[in-house]
Design a binder for these strands. Sequence first.
DNA 1: ATTGTGACGCGTT
DNA 2: TAACGCGCCACAA
Length: 133
Amino acid sequence: MARSDEAEVFFYAVYTAVQQIPRGKVTSYGHIARLIGTPQRPRQVGICLKHLPQDAGAPFNHDNVPWQRVINAKGMISPRSQPSGARGQAAALQEEGVIVTTGALGELMVDFSEYGWFPNELPSDLEDEQETS
DNA sequence: ATTGTGACGCGTT
DNA sequence: TAACGCGCCACAA
């Protein structure tokens, strides 16, 4: 692996946590950071998703990690998420029943009070899952 | 090796 | 209320 071992652990934690987000729900980068015990690094969560492989053969990839369900704390889909803007992510969310509204500036928003998923901790322990790799 | 750049969030202005 | 500053740290140049 190219990344350091610590980074590897962090990536694993992020991807696994994101997989816990139920279909049709959304959460924030910051909340994912809190769930995995690193509340000071919402930004690194974004980096993990940014580098999420598209290759279906990878252990974590665009198919098995619902990256589209992670948005920022203001409830808006990050414009930087994709080259074409946030449209693709919005489409992916709408496909699973999430209503995405468009602001005056063309910003794509999701109502947290309706679709927010903010548990205090992860439903399953993620610490000791993958022992063999 | 160094420097700059972020799929962010929160406290201060 | 909005804008700015800073922490965080993996990655690309």
